[in-house]
């Protein structure tokens, strides 16, 4: 499934979507960068409530398909800007991490 398809099916708000064609091959949930760095896999959709600009670095380094900021945590203008610059697909939703993952599990 592509990131664009994920956006459409889950009704995510695309804050930055430079690569809608990226393939989502797995998922990871976590709100501590060191856990994510140690366990997330390349091509994953990362579901988190973290919303500072560090999420862009993590996404770049792991080569994630996208980051989904849940629970209405949202991101600032600055973080959206960094995501564009670093070519990170950054999506937001009001839904909880649980609901987001539950929906994703239907497709992944």
């Amino acid at each position: 499934m592509t990131v664009q398809e994920l956006v459409d099916r889950l009704g995510l708000d695309p804050v930055a979507l430079p690569h809608p064609e990226y393939e989502v091959t797995s998922g990871y949930v976590g709100d501590m960068p060191s856990w994510v760095m140690g366990n997330a896999t390349e091509g994953c959709a990362w579901v988190t409530i973290l919303n500072n600009r560090n999420i862009a670095a993590v996404a770049v380094l792991i080569e994630m398909a996208c980051v989904i900021v849940t629970e209405g945590a949202g991101v600032s203008e600055e973080v959206a800007q960094v995501a564009m610059e670093q070519e990170v697909n950054l999506l937001c939703t009001e839904k909880s991490s649980f609901d987001t993952v539950a929906r994703m599990a239907e497709f992944l």
């Binding site: 709100d31 501590m32 960068p33 060191s34 856990w35 760095m37 560090n54």
Partner: peptide, 15 residues
């Protein structure tokens, strides 16, 4: 509060 402090950084470096 920014998510750091899991105590996983140095173990990740080693691994």
């Amino acid at each position: 509060s920014a998510g750091f402090g899991a105590g996983m950084g140095l173990p990740n470096m080693k691994k």
